[in-house]
């Protein structure tokens, strides 16, 4: 067991090109997915919190439920969309990193939107009279509240990022786990497990966990610094 860990750690430290490529792709895909999903989910979540419209309750329930969307189902949906036999087949995105970004963004979107809605809703209760008095329209309140809730939003984004990096079923279906093209940490771990290389698989898992830990520690550190100034 120790040998595999030592071996995997050595591969990382020695800058093994294949492994580093896999690590880099994992981060690129998941960070991109968080970025694009948030671009939409933050304002959408805030808008649902601030605007009242028919069917709003249903939308909230749906978003909350979609936080538990099974990754394979998301994978299958995106596969059917991006397949040459599907409506977006002509884009030629299937089995590329872009397809993995799409499917991860789909998984992240409900999490970020639902948690953002909750947070903005709470903030709105606190701010609503003051902002109205100052002349903030509901539309203008969206960026104001998102910015004032930035410390809580970091946690929301990390939750999304965690879901993206931890996920294997969806990226396997739409990425295909192609060596050097769409192979990421989780699909590598699944592959090594099915080859019976349990120790190597576990070591890769340890690397993934370490990376996740580092990113969370960084976000926490930055958040705490900023919080000390402005909270």
């Amino acid at each position: 067991m120790g040998d595999a860990f030592a071996g995997a750690a050595w591969l990382v430290l020695a800058g093994d090109a294949v492994l580093l490529g896999i690590v880099q792709l994992s981060l690129q895909v998941s960070l991109s997915a968080v970025f694009f999903a948030s671009l939409l989910a933050l304002p959408v979540g805030a808008a649902i919190a601030l605007y009242h419209f028919p069917g709003r309750g249903a939308v909230i329930v749906l978003l909350n439920a979609l936080m538990g969307l099974p990754p394979v189902v998301a994978g299958l949906l995106v596969y059917l969309m991006l397949s040459r036999a599907g409506p977006l087949g002509s884009l030629g995105l299937l089995f590329t990193p872009a397809a993995m970004v799409v499917v991860q963004a789909l998984l992240i979107f409900p999490i970020v939107a639902a948690l953002t809605r909750q947070m903005v809703s709470d903030l709105w209760d606190e701010y609503h009279e003051q902002l109205t008095s100052l002349g903030t329209s509901r539309l203008r309140a969206i960026p104001t509240l998102l910015w004032d809730g930035r410390f809580s939003l970091v946690t929301t984004l990390l939750a999304g990022f965690g879901r993206a990096t931890a996920e294997v079923g969806a990226v396997l279906i739409v990425g295909g786990n192609i060596a050097g093209v769409t192979r990421v940490m989780t699909t590598s771990i699944a592959l090594e497990t099915s080859k019976g290389n349990l120790e190597l698989a576990l070591a890769l898992g340890a690397i993934l966990m370490t990376l996740t830990l580092l990113i969370n520690a960084m976000a926490f550190g930055v958040g705490e610094l900023a919080k000390r100034r402005y909270e």
Binding site: E126, E129, Q130, L131, L134, T144, W147, D148, Y230
Partner: peptide, 13 residues
Amino acid sequence: QAMVFQRPILLRR
């Protein structure tokens, strides 16, 4: 008009 509340809500800025 402007209004000042008993407990002002200041932005986290």
